[in-house]
């Protein structure tokens, strides 16, 4: 049982959990994730490690379905029955020391991008961060990212805060204005990462994407998280989650993420007693 030390609702649908997991905290590096299971009847769900200290692992969770709704009912002092990690390959960042890097995150992807931006900033990369949200109510980690970047650009789809529009627009504008990036890291919904690659590819800026496939074990034994990268089959949980964005088949990845849409709705209905269509 992994004890919840702290639970904070960052906004209506985003929760931060600080979880006591010393073994994982000791080994975790940016880009890695954990898998947790709530209880005996629970499913195994992956969450990226947002930060660590000596004892604890922080994860940031968006309420999107049955398990995350039930997680929202937990409080400090409660625990997760199973909490395993760190999983996946750490993001390769050290070679970007002294380079110009742009980190592009969308929505909850911000929580995943944060440890990478922080690490890059610490090793002396020039870090620009572009963060996109639907509206100003769901903005997270603004202060943390300001402290971990040279320039922070926030966009909202509805213009309620920062620039209006998508992250891809800002990225395109910055490149047009003459910003020279050696590398772009992007984390968010697959469609957003696909669009980021569409911006960077014509300029030949190497782009790392962090894939968020459906997973079961997270240790490479089932292939549920498989995707096509450069024409080859890869498992996001052990070969990734980071991949060369120019080589990922995003359309296939987006299709695979819809594999359980029907069951997820059924699951939410059972929990809420109402019909949801999203």
């Amino acid at each position: 049982m992994a004890r919840i030390i702290e639970k904070t609702n960052l906004n209506d649908n985003t929760i931060k959990f600080v979880v006591k997991a010393p073994a994982i905290a000791k080994k975790a590096l940016p880009g890695q994730f954990i898998i947790l299971r709530l209880d005996e009847k629970g499913e195994r769900v992956p969450f990226t490690i947002s930060s660590t200290d000596d004892e604890n692992v922080t994860i940031i969770v968006q309420i999107v379905g049955g398990t995350t709704m039930r997680m929202n009912a937990l409080k400090a002092g409660d625990g997760f029955l199973d909490f395993v990690g760190p999983l996946g390959k750490p993001t390769e960042l050290d070679y970007l020391k002294g380079k110009n890097v742009c980190v592009v995150g969308g929505g909850l992807g911000t929580a995943i991008a944060y440890p990478q931006a922080k690490y890059l900033h610490e090793i002396g990369a020039n870090v620009d961060v572009i963060m996109g949200f639907k509206n100003k109510d769901i903005i997270i980690l603004e202060d943390e990212l300001k402290a971990s970047s040279d320039n922070l650009y926030i966009t909202t789809d509805d213009g309620s805060y920062g620039r209006q529009g998508f992250v891809t627009q800002v990225l395109g504008d910055l490149i047009k204005e003459g910003k020279k990036y050696d590398h772009v890291l992007t984390i968010g919904p697959a469609i957003m990462m696909k669009n980021v690659v569409n911006v960077t590819k014509p300029h030949d800026i190497p782009t790392t994407v962090s894939m968020n496939s459906i997973m079961v074990d997270g240790t490479g034994m089932c292939g549920c998280c498989r995707l096509t990268v450069g024409g080859e089959m890869k498992f996001a949980c052990v070969d990734g989650p980071d991949f060369d964005g120019f080589l990922v088949d995003f359309d296939e990845a987006m299709n695979r993420s819809r594999n359980y849409a029907t069951e997820e709705r059924e699951h939410i209905c059972k929990l809420t007693g109402e019909v949801r269509n999203g």
Binding site: K41, G42, E43, G66, V216, D217, E263, E264, E266, H267
Partner: peptide
């Protein structure tokens, strides 16, 4: 794994689904 370990045949009593 979904069926045996996660008991997906008992979905939605158990959280893991199988399609």
């Amino acid at each position: 794994t979904r069926m045996n370990l996660m008991k997906a045949y008992k979905f939605p009593e158990y959280d893991t689904a199988v399609h």
